[in-house]
Amino acid sequence: MMEANLKTNTNELSVPSASARFRESFRKNWYKFSRNKLSIIGLIVVLAVIILAILAPYVTPYPKHAGKFVDYDNANLAPCAQYLLGTDIIGRDILTRIIFSFRGALLMAVVVLAISVPIGVFLGLIAGYFKGSLIDTIIMRITDIFLAVPPLLLALAIAAVLEPNLTNSMIAVTVMWWPWYTRMVYGMASSYRNEYFVIGADLIGASRFHILFREILPNCLSPIFTKMALDVGWVILIGASLSFVGLGEQPPTPALGQMVSDGSRYMPDSWWMTIFPALAIIVIILGFNLLGDGIRDMLAKGEKGNE
């Protein structure tokens, strides 16, 4: 008993190595993430979607159906053994086209968030830290203007003015997405700047850069990451809405919204053309939402034991 105690003590007293610290933090984070089984489901769904999208030409039954392809002999077939989710009005496999449309959807989510989040976070940090100054007023009034316009409407307007394609729909969604991050980070930064740890860093002589990016930003990351994981689903939904009205990816490249819109003309007789792409949208959004909840649990700090 005594010896066992002594042994653990000597182990603890030494400074842990970098790899041991990494393993330890990974174990803790995984524990917090996996406490909720739904997060694991979300993770599995998201990983599955990503893997399917990347390997689309190899895992889909009819990769050719993703492009220009016509097969009137097999057009308008209900789900069967050969075409698991049926075929559309010109004979293309719905399953293949759904999996290929994940590519555009994920690309859009990644590009939109990769551009809008850094911009939004940066502006929010600056405006929040210099709360009450002219720069705060300028940034936040511009943000308010963007937030005042209904997001889908703004995206529709921008996408309609530009030539309809995937790149322009990404631009449109990016333009309407950053203000949400600015608003969120602004609130956090303007409260953290009065915290003693920020004041303390200033009194030590830390630079503005250090205070903004090393003291305040790390404390904002948990909500930012959570929101990002949730937003992937929403960006995909907005992207689907744009392609539903014909402002996204152009045919013959498949897009989920476009498939729902094309199929809706043949409802309810050829229900599979609409229902399966719509279900795919639901599954993706649900997956990212569950993953987002898991990430939030994982990054929760304070008494919940963020070490």
Partner: peptide, 24 residues
Amino acid sequence: FQDPGSSLNGQQNIRQILELPLRV
């Protein structure tokens, strides 16, 4: 400061906290 809970950044480890004045 009076309250060590709020005067230290919870997102940094003690090494990072002590490094700041040494580096600056």
